[in-house]
Deep mutational scan, measured.
Amino acid sequence: KHLIERYYHQLTEGCGNEACTNEFCASCPTFLRMDNNAAAIKALELYKINAKLCDPH
């Protein structure tokens, strides 16, 4: 559950690194913003595939 919350935060708030290159992070310049419901679904999907989590900045 904690990991899913981290994915959700990364998708909605980002890691804080303006030069982030993680396509699944709101801080990445090319990230496409999504609403909270879509972010919750995506967080579950990312958890299932063990996607990369950013280190908070």
Rank of each mutant, 00 (worst) to 15 (best):
T21K: 15
A51M: 04
F24R: 07
T12I: 09
H57K: 07
Y7S: 01
P29T: 05
P29I: 06
Q10P: 01
K48F: 01
N37M: 05
H9K: 15
E45W: 03
R33D: 04
E45H: 05
L3H: 14
T30P: 07
D55W: 07
K42M: 03
A26E: 03
L3V: 02
G16R: 06
P56G: 14
E45S: 09
H2F: 15
E23G: 10
A38K: 10
I4Q: 15
T21C: 12
N50W: 03
E13A: 14
D35A: 09
A51W: 11
E45L: 04
C20T: 01
A40L: 08
N36W: 04
N17M: 07
F24L: 12
L44P: 15
E13R: 12
C28Y: 09
H57N: 15
M34R: 07
T30W: 12
G16I: 03
K48G: 04
E5L: 06
N37H: 08
A39D: 02
A38W: 06
L11Q: 02
N17S: 11
L32Q: 14
C25V: 00
L32V: 13
R33E: 12
C28H: 06
E5I: 06
T30H: 06
I41K: 15
L11P: 01
D55S: 09
K48A: 05
E5M: 07
F31A: 14
N50D: 14
I41V: 13
A40V: 05
S27M: 06
M34C: 11
E5F: 06
L3A: 03
L32F: 04
A26Y: 08
G16M: 05
K48H: 06
Q10T: 06
Y47C: 14
G16H: 09
N22H: 03
L46A: 07
C20R: 01
G14W: 00
D35W: 03
P56I: 11
A51I: 02
Y7V: 02
E45V: 03
L44D: 14
N17D: 10
P56V: 12
A26M: 06
S27T: 06
A40Y: 04
L53R: 10
A26F: 15
L3D: 03
C20V: 00
R6V: 10
K48T: 06
C25M: 01
E5Q: 14
F31V: 10
R33W: 03
C28M: 10
N22T: 06
G16K: 09
Y47P: 10
P56R: 14
A43E: 00
Y7E: 00
M34P: 10
E18K: 08
E5C: 06
